[in-house]
């Protein structure tokens, strides 16, 4: 198993900087997700680790080996990096059977036939495809093909597993169960995983740590709960979960909502002038009899397990999510009181 070190890595395509000073150490056996919107540089980063892109600057090491270093001019091709990789498009070879697909890395390594067959079968059993060895990929469903791809990536027992949006071609239910399967397999094998996704719930649910990227720059690295409860900046707060951004201002040493004096917060971070007050819809308590802010319900959306409200507080439209399915407790036009919990403040730009 291997530790991955990425130090001061840049990737430039002409004038465009796709990855800007990326630094990360993935510990041995750790599951790290790189999360960000499309075009943020997450896939480019993964492809540099795999060796499909050459870093313009910086050093990448896998285990003991420096696999890419711009200063030393080192560049180890993908086939010599001892990694397994799962692609979004599965990349299962259509001209080979399932067993041939999974056995290919062992065939390249010249593993004897009997041992190869035994290991392929063990791997297929692990991904619940024990009976499918003789089939061709076009006889399998998308989820099954993705399991073939996973088995092929793991069969040679590489030190590092890279996954590039492996679940985004699957339907919602299958995605949930595959999350669980991937985690189970990671636990069993103890392999180091770098997982690229644009789906924040996937990243949150699966990872030990999450790297949030935007426009080529790492915004924050942390455990899922850290990223959720104390986002480093507005971008991270916005990207992870739902959040209200309300216009606020600093008056003296307190922060107020613009045009509202009913409640204020201590300015702990020493912000100045215009600020953004951020609060998650589920961190707001709504009641009919008194609280920090007074507002009027303008819209309600029934979501089954909860109700999604829009409340007008002096012109600030606040989204409030209230658990339970009692939609009639606060009808449209009724006056309500809101209490904000876990409020965050950012500089407004």
């Amino acid at each position: 198993m291997a530790e991955v070190r990425i130090e001061h890595v840049f990737k430039r395509f002409g004038a465009v900087t796709a990855v800007d000073d990326f630094n990360l150490v993935v510990k041995d056996g750790e599951f790290v997700s790189i999360l960000g919107p499309s075009g943020c540089g997450k896939t480019t980063t993964l492809r540099m680790i795999a060796g499909f892109e050459r870093a313009t600057e910086g050093t990448i090491s896998i285990g003991e080996h420096v696999v890419s270093s711009s200063e030393a001019g080192t560049f180890v091709p993908p086939e010599d990096r001892d990694i397994g990789m799962v692609f979004q498009s599965y990349a299962v070879w259509p001209h080979m059977t399932v067993a041939e697909n999974v056995g290919y890395p062992l065939k390249i390594k010249k593993v004897p036939k009997e041992e190869r067959e035994r290991r392929v079968q063990a791997m297929l059993d692990l991904v619940h495809l024990g009976e499918y060895g003789k089939r061709y990929p076009n006889q399998l469903s998308g989820g099954q093909q993705q399991r073939v791809s996973l088995a092929r990536a793991l069969v040679a027992e590489p030190g590092l597993l890279l996954l590039d949006e492996p679940l985004s071609n699957l339907d919602a239910k299958l995605r949930e169960s595959m999350r669980f399967e991937i985690l189970e397999i990671q636990k069993k094998t103890g392999i180091t995983v770098v997982y690229v996704t644009h789906d924040q719930s996937e990243a949150m649910a699966m990872s030990d740590r999450v790297v949030v990227m935007s426009m080529g720059v790492v915004q924050q690295i942390g455990a899922p709960h850290e990223i959720y409860t104390s986002p480093a900046n507005k971008m991270v707060a916005d990207f992870i979960g739902l959040i209200n951004f309300l216009d606020g201002e600093v008056k003296g040493d307190r922060i107020f909502l613009v045009g509202n004096d009913s409640h204020s917060w201590a300015n702990k971070n020493g912000l100045e002038g215009e600020v953004t007050v951020a609060v998650r819809p589920e961190s707001i308590t709504m009641s009919a009899d008194g609280g920090e802010f007074r507002g009027v319900v303008t819209h309600r959306f029934y979501l089954g397990d909860s109700v999604d409200f829009r409340v007008d507080v002096n012109g600030h439209i606040v989204r409030v999510i209230k658990k339970g399915s009692d939609i009639e407790a606060f009808p449209d036009g009724s006056t309500v009181y809101l209490d904000f919990d876990q409020v965050m403040f950012f500089k407004r730009n």
Partner: peptide, 18 residues
């Protein structure tokens, strides 16, 4: 052709010619 089909062979250990 989907280029990841070839990339999958590379990470599986195959040289470009292979």
């Amino acid at each position: 052709m989907d280029p990841t089909l070839e990339e999958a062979a590379r990470v599986a250990g195959a040289s470009p010619l292979r």
